[in-house]
Amino acid sequence: MATTGQERIIQPRVSDIRKILDKQSNGASSLLAVLEDIQHQYRFLPRDALIMVSERIPVPLSRVYSVATFYNAFSLKPRGRHCFQVCTGTACHVRGATLVINRLETLLGIETGETSDDLEYTLETVNCLGACALGPIVVTEQGYDGMMTISKVDKLMRRVHSLGSENADAGKPAQVDAAATDTAPPA
């Protein structure tokens, strides 16, 4: 089912992790920075990578696990190349975030909190983003989209989808490289 590219994302290469570790000082205090780099490269924290981290820096694996599960910025499950974050804060909820979520779930064929099997899309909810007047809000790598309605979700979906197919044209291995070298952080 999974292509080589996807496997490479899920199964970190020892040399890749080493490169990340070599960039940092390797003291116990570099833990967060290392985890951030790994998360950035793989879009999640592969278990083997965490084990390698604990072998290299003087922090027990249990502590690495504790930190990795504490911060929302880290994920222990693979995440899709495109992430939809729907605000479910009070204001957005009242303004119809549920409709937006339902529409996205239908379009993507996944439930909230899940990632599609092809590792393309992840659907998440977030708490108040501080822009309640624009609710309901959806955040993607395209930025913040406010006042979302079902038809606007459909449009956004098409925009994000076209991004994906551009990359796909370049072939699967290129996708992985693009993901690995992509340094432009989303908004």
Partner: peptide, 10 residues
């Protein structure tokens, strides 16, 4: 001195 367990999640 082992650290086999920790607090997970939040």
């Amino acid at each position: 001195g082992i650290g086999a367990i920790s607090m997970a999640n939040r």
